[in-house]
Design a protein around this nucleic acid. Structure first.
Lengths: 212, 212
DNA sequence: CCGGTTTTGTCGCCTAAACGACGGAGGTTT
DNA sequence: AAACCTCCGTCGTTTAGGCGACAAAACCGG
């Protein structure tokens, strides 16, 4: 009822994105991931993507530098969505959640390998970067939440999150490379201590139930 | 190679629809049919539809008079799509295809009844009209294809198609109203002669294998 | 009955997307 | 080589869609 909001904060820097932009990006992303299950990346043209997305080819370039940029964006969105759907909003750091994190990465990479026809060419590094950065976001979130004691020689949350994100990705790659791999869940339990070690050095030295 | 197409027939009356228009209509239609499975028609607001379709409310009015018009358009599109997917492109008139036609209508109406929460209020007449007209299109197509002999007292294809379209819809309603109805396929076989009668009077009096 | 709320249509201004066109960079075929 | 594809990336113009705002209607509880 109070109509006092005449002061429109319209030029608020970010200005709230146009819904068309959001929809278009979503359509491009969706079209691209569909195509990635049908053709190899090199065989996908910008026109293919735009056409499938019911979007003009020029519009594609308004959103992404090229198809590599779209690949990065798509992978990032997918892994982010999976991680956040597995780990309930604002879930804290504990061994189970960490295990779930690793498991999710394993399953994600596995699915990509099973659904997307090779050759991948130079794509792995690109996708890898997205996954690692998404991991870093979550790990870092966990670490700064923790009441850090911050002794002089303690690693910073940034350092720990960085190391752990690489470690987790490495673990997933190792699992994928195994000739005949067992269930991912089992594997995760094996390597979990290797990774949780690099996190527990940060903060919480006393009374942590996890180390007990 | 031949670049002689400098004469752009751009102002060709219809001018080929803008892809945005097609997409927007599709989105609205999709959003609407989703909502129809969740709420009763009266409880659906234009904002609901537009929001679900990721489209502005004003844009809705650029395409449809009101939600009743969208209902009509959606029903029409759905029944058309079903009919054409069941009857392979350009299939001719014969008893089997006619039976398939009736069957499709029965199943379609049945699905609507099972998926869309009542009350329907004044909606049936609206939907009915769309279904009948779609039927008429197909029936009329069949009849004008046939090599018509066209005796003086013979009904015209228009007359026959009109009568048959009403008859088919009536048959479907009758099936739906039955307290405990058997399989639609069986029912269709029972009423088929009632309907095919009104079609065979048009044209093809000699040598028609169907009447033999 | 009457205020308050929600929904409905409609307006004008601005922005994202569609389009045709272009030149240029590979890659085939002849 | 030259002719010919296809795909790329970018330009200027036109158009559909997003948005705030508005009055009129429909709705609703007091």
């Amino acid at each position: 009822m109070l109509l006092d909001q005449e002061l429109v904060e319209k030029s608020e820097q970010v200005r709230k994105e146009d819904p068309r932009v959001i929809r278009t990006r979503q359509l491009l992303q969706q079209a691209f991931s569909e195509l990635m299950m049908e053709k190899s990346f090199q065989d996908i043209t910008v026109q293919d993507i735009a056409g499938r997305a019911t979007v003009n080819r020029v519009t594609f370039y308004a959103h992404f530098q090229d198809k590599y940029a779209l690949l990065a964006h798509t992978v990032r969105a997918m892994i982010r969505q999976r991680l956040h759907s597995q780990l309930p909003e604002g879930s804290p750091y504990n061994p189970e959640n960490l295990a779930q994190l690793i498991l999710t990465v394993c399953e994600f990479l596995d699915e990509i390998g099973r659904h997307c026809p090779p050759p991948y060419g130079q794509l792995e590094p690109l996708m890898e970067k997205q996954v690692r950065e998404a991991l870093y976001e979550i790990l870092h979130g966990w670490l700064v939440e923790n009441p850090t004691v911050g002794a002089g020689s303690c690693p910073t949350p940034e350092q720990a999150a960085m190391v752990a994100s690489w470690a987790i990705y490495g673990a997933a790659v190792q699992w994928l490379q195994q000739e005949q791999r067992g269930p991912a869940g089992e594997y995760v339990r094996q390597v979990l201590p290797l990774i949780s070690g690099s996190l527990q050095l940060v903060g919480d030295k006393k009374g942590d139930p996890l180390t007990a």
